[in-house]
Design a protein around this nucleic acid. Sequence first.
DNA 1: CAGAGTGACTTAAGCGCTTCAGAAAGTCCA
DNA 2: TGGACTTTCTGAAGCGCTTAAGTCACTCTG
Lengths: 361, 361
Amino acid sequence: MVTSPRRRRPTLDDVADAVGVSRATVSNAYNRPDQLSAGLRAEVLRAAKKLGYSGPNPVARSLATSRTGAIAVLLDTGLSAAFSDPALSITLDALAGAVDPGGHALLILPGGDDGGPNAGRVLAAQADLAVAYSLADHAPALKAIRERGLPLVVIDQPHVPGSARVSVDDRGGAELAARHLLELGHRRFAVLSAQCLSAPRGGPLSPEEAKRSLFRDNRERFAGYLGPIAAAGIAEHDVLIMETSGTSREVAMASARALLAHEPRPTAMLCMSDELALATLAVARQLGLAVPSDLSIVGFDDAPGAAWAAPGLTTVRQDLVRKGRLAGEFAVRLLDGEKAPPPVTLAVDLVVRDSTAPPRP
Amino acid sequence: MVTSPRRRRPTLDDVADAVGVSRATVSNAYNRPDQLSAGLRAEVLRAAKKLGYSGPNPVARSLATSRTGAIAVLLDTGLSAAFSDPALSITLDALAGAVDPGGHALLILPGGDDGGPNAGRVLAAQADLAVAYSLADHAPALKAIRERGLPLVVIDQPHVPGSARVSVDDRGGAELAARHLLELGHRRFAVLSAQCLSAPRGGPLSPEEAKRSLFRDNRERFAGYLGPIAAAGIAEHDVLIMETSGTSREVAMASARALLAHEPRPTAMLCMSDELALATLAVARQLGLAVPSDLSIVGFDDAPGAAWAAPGLTTVRQDLVRKGRLAGEFAVRLLDGEKAPPPVTLAVDLVVRDSTAPPRP
DNA sequence: CAGAGTGACTTAAGCGCTTCAGAAAGTCCA
DNA sequence: TGGACTTTCTGAAGCGCTTAAGTCACTCTG
């Protein structure tokens, strides 16, 4: 019984035996260099190298310390769709940057068709904390997180008791966009939204349906769009609303095309993301519609692409980097055992570029 | 000593005690329902629910089974930069889809400034396998993976003994692009590349420097571009080469602008990704250059944006979905204990759209 | 009705590490 | 010179779970 038949990886004990010290000492050599003499530490490390020991097994360490060093990120779509939205990439990058000094990596849990990741996956995820990004209100994943008692940070979602939250003033932003167009004199509006209802469906939506969206940010934006429009004496039912299914550009373009095919054609399009706005811009170009003289378009996010577009996109700016960083900081604080800070709502503002103008008389 | 002061989470033992069975039975209730009677199982689950036990602790389970259920993805840049490239999103989405049935999530390790993720992070990552995506050849992360003895799948990188590999015919694709332009009659070329050398620097590159790129795919593409051009009797040093630093659109546009400012202006631009090509397209528009009559542009990847662009982008198509899926399948096979399959190189082809034409006479 | 079989649980040995409470040996100062 | 400290290292108790092997009480067969 000298060595196991299948050459197993060396462990802390093997190193300890090789050097002739206790296991605790080897552990200290890696984790608390001040607990042993420099000479012995060097000897331990040398022996480890010789044996091919690459340091404490991360899983075993996690079990002993009850810290995994990972943060689960719960998304509501697949990776490709999720990351085709620059807003997510930017937010997550900032988040990753904020938690990186603490040594936390991101464990990505993509969503399925029920507004978030599979609950079983969430229950099995090795993470110290979860970040939920714009999930449907009823997402099973959220329940799983609660069951596990995992600290939670939510982004762009309704507040969950006990969790930290950062979101933006979706409604206020949408109002800014709608008022801007109203002030320019528009009366025929269309709204292009990402998925609102369960099960990818896509297609036209009534204002009532829109306001019942499963996603809080959608609901808020709808309310923000429709409020000022209604206040201006335009019937909500005269506002065309279209939900896209999925997040691909093709689908978005098809939806935009459907909206623009309506008679009388809307003169202003309110888009819930810059991606949707850019898709609309592309469709307008295909149809030979001049933007902004034939059609005004307003986006949301102020993603980098909004500024590069031709014409530059008028859009509601939100500070994505700040949002991600804040979420990351909240995560770190929760991990440090602090209580959840009060929810933060970031302000937005309207960036007027060249995609909006008064409608043709 | 009835209960610990800080209410700790219930464990398998607590449930076992509550029901009055052994720990193994509770474990079986979760993992091997056929090992106990349906009645007892229901009772166990009921007790678990009552105690607030949400199922076996993932970390402890991992330690016992020596499987984590996560796949580490090693990237060479930060998240924002990484995901601003649709090629990565698409590949990773396909990869995630392929490993999902096995219950594997992706643990994302973004890169720093040394061509890959920090080695310490890699050593500490809780994963069963690593996927390296287009890292620099010497990336410390790769060494860390080897030390750990973790199975490895590399994408678009040199072969690592013992690991699986999928890549595309970068050189062949680049040759197709160059030949296409030569056949159209171009003689003044520029090449726009992503980062090649260590430490983000950006700026003009000599052909020698270019061929020493730290990234295999870059080297191959350079070779593929320059080969046919040289064969056509054009001196390599007459080809303008520019490396961008980072991956943001702004930086890419600045690089493109610099190339187009050269006198005499190149008539054809070879871009190592569609993102770079689209940035070039935007610059050309700003400069009032007509594409393709004043300037031909060829991209690489055939990302979705290539088709939407106006004009449609001529580009080298690679099957990103297939690449990701294949990598995922290889991962699954390695996890099943199979030997590394032989490396696969996917074919590419040239998609000719409207961004290339003969140069103005 | 003995012996083989089967179903339903339990026992106990890990998985590889951290960490706290000592122990042993040396240092310091009155 | 001897008690009070330090420094350096060890012992051992977990962390929460899986799983191979074993026990025990039955049910079939021939």
